[in-house]
Structure formats: structure tokens, C-alpha cells
Design a binder for these strands. Structure first.
Lengths: 129, 129
DNA sequence: CGCCTGCTTCGATGAACTTCTAATTAAAGA
DNA sequence: TCTTTAATTAGAAGTTCATCGAAGCAGGCG
């Protein structure tokens, strides 16, 4: 389940380059870079997916079962499943089935790259991403 | 022009709270917070708008005329105008007419808040936002 | 005043997205 | 094996969105 659908995580912009400022404001984004980055932001540009991401990240152990997530919304399981798929295809989360339940966890690197693109990078933390 | 359409810039999450980690992973986003934050990300979740933002930010003087922006795309002026309006309504940019031309510039605070939400906050820079 | 240029608004169209119900797959237990 | 529960996929309905052409507004200039 976490094997296919390889994420789109290589748009020229490297967040780890100890830059003085956000890559976005250093030089204009190319058409290709923008085309690769936009879907990442589109994936979190939804209230449900934003909360899903937060719920997963905050859950103990750093991972959450779908059953934990479904109960937090007034939405049907298929809808939650759809949103989880969008997040997974963007590379923001990953999943694994263990017995009866399917667990999801966050991919912090992708989130960090997005953050670094639009905001100032701390030289101290930039190298660790 | 920069008077009406007040931006949606007050979703509970404060980026300046010297947190150890991204607010997103500290505690689950409330329904209301998610509803206020999602439109911000939706505004930059488009290749054209991502490039517009970058072009404006990188332009000398920190501001760009619409005429500079339109020529960078294979799109008609109405379409560019539409995307600029979306960015402006989200509070990410602001604009002013000076004589013949209309100039746009970035609102760094909103971008910084979005960045802080999804990524690690540097204690050093966090207070300055 | 009348025209021209820069930019925005309006209205329409086709594509993409969110959500649902129904059906399907996968694992566990009687 | 049959049944039950967990999760996903398939298909459809309604809505939102990106884009365009046409029209409108605002400033400069003859």
C-alpha cells in the first residue's frame, strides 16, 4: 500500500540550502517548479485534509488508525478514505495495514520543504531537514 | 483598492509563540481553525498563483506592475487579474494604483504564519513575525 | 473633448473537486 | 466455511474553479 503512487517530491527547490530567505522570494519560480509544488499545497488546501494531517501528527506514537480519524468528522468513511488517498498521493503521509486496521503517519520532510519554500528558513534547523 | 476585502488572517494558531514544533503537530486543529487556514493554502495551491507570488516577491523594490506579470504567462490579462484577486482576497498580497499602472506587493506576515503552521519554528525568528 | 492604453469585472463554458451510496476487498472469529 | 467488521474502490450528483471573450472603468495625452 505504501509502495505504489510514488510522491512528487523533487521540485528543484531544496529547502536545506541554508538560505537567507525563503526560496520563493530569492528568485522567481520556474514553470516546472510551480507545477510540481502546487499539488503539494493543493493537498493541504482543504479543511478536512488539514485536520486529518493534524490529527495524525498529534496522535500518540505519531500514527493513527483510520477508525480514529473517521469518528472525528461528520463524514462517511469513503470520504475520509478519499482525503487520505489525496494526502498519500502527495507524499505527505504514508500508510500500512497491520491486521484489521490501517495506520497512517506523517512524512515530515515534505511538510518541511513546503514550509521552507514560503517562509524564512532558520539556518540552525535548515541543515537537519 | 487595498481598503475593502479584508483578509482572513486570524485563525487561532499563532505562529509567534516560540513553539518547539509546528502548531500543526502540537495539538489537533479545530474545525474553525482548519476552515480559516485552508483558504490561505488554497490561494497558493495553483501553479500560476505560486509563480505570481514569486515574481512579485523577487521583483526589484519588492513590488511589481501587472504589466510585468502578464507577460510572464501564456494567459490573458483577465485570467492574471483573476489570480491576483484571489491572492489579494486571501491577504497574501496588496495593491495600489499609481497613475497608469497598478502595483502589487507581498504581505510577508501571512506567508510566515502559513510557513510556521506546517513547519518547525525557529525560536530565533519566531518572535519577529 | 475624444481617444488610447492598462487593468478589472461580467458572463459563459468545460474541467476538477467533494461528497454520497452501493459494491468490493481484506482480515478475524464463530 | 460463513459472517462480521474495517477500509477502499466505483460511479454519480452537485458544486467550485480556471479560463476565455466582451464589455466597462480609470488615467494620460493629443
Amino acid at each position: 500500500m505504501s509502495k505504489q503512487e510514488l510522491p512528487i517530491v523533487d521540485a528543484g527547490v531544496d529547502a536545506s540550502a541554508g538560505a537567507c530567505c525563503a526560496p520563493l522570494v530569492c528568485e522567481p519560480l520556474s514553470e516546472g517548479e510551480a507545477a510540481e509544488l502546487a499539488p503539494l499545497f493543493k493537498a493541504i488546501a482543504d479543511p478536512v485534509r488539514l485536520r486529518l494531517l493534524s490529527l495524525i501528527a498529534c496522535h500518540e506514537g505519531g500514527e493513527a488508525c483510520v477508525c480514529d480519524l473517521t469518528t472525528a468528522f461528520d463524514l462517511t468513511p469513503p470520504t475520509i478514505s478519499h482525503h487520505l488517498k489525496v494526502l498519500r498521493q502527495a507524499g505527505l503521509i504514508d500508510s500500512e495495514r497491520r491486521g484489521t486496521w490501517v495506520y497512517y503517519w506523517i512524512n515530515p520532510a515534505v511538510l518541511a520543504r513546503m514550509s521552507a519554500l514560503i517562509g524564512p528558513v532558520s539556518p540552525a534547523l535548515a541543515g537537519t531537514a
